[in-house]
Amino acid sequence: MKKFLIGLITFSLIIFFETRGLAHGVGYRQSNLKSIALEFFYSTGEKMSYREAKVFSPQDAKFAVQSGRTDEQGRFAFIPDSPGEWRVIVRDEEGHQCEAKINLSKEFFSDKATSDSQNNNQQKNFPEGLELFIRALLGVSLIFNAAFLIITVKRR
């Protein structure tokens, strides 16, 4: 009986300390750190919703410092911690990829920095509207001009 009680107490102590050891506390606090928020979209204007996003710091171009997904509106945000060129790559399952390059100066990390400087970093990857129409027309024109050039050369 005595041995049983000693064993029971020992077992209880082990379980007690083991459980305390495993129980990590968690918490949160609201942060005032400046973030960079980006919107990703296709040439058609469609949002790149829920696409894989990776953030590369100026110090390491190979390994992402942050990864996640864009939200429903194609938005993704990260918090930079050093000046230089930050890259955010968003890609979909079909292989489409958009790379945003954000150049951050030392002023960005000072208190006087305004949000205007962030807006200047927007990258426009795809043509839209009239420019899209002109480029489409140019493409078709080039194809047919090449075809007629080949025909002319072959006939001579």
């Binding site: 296709y42 058609t44 469609e46 899209l132 489409a136 493409g139 194809i143 075809a147 072959k154």
Partner: peptide, 28 residues
């Protein structure tokens, strides 16, 4: 040579087709 215009036409159709998106559910 006789088929070059046909090749150019279909190449143009293929070139332009990527600009015309079709909506399928939440994606396109």
């Amino acid at each position: 040579t006789k088929k070059i215009v046909r090749v150019a036409f279909l190449s143009s159709v293929f070139f332009l087709a990527s600009l015309v998106n079709i909506r399928i559910g939440a994606s396109s």
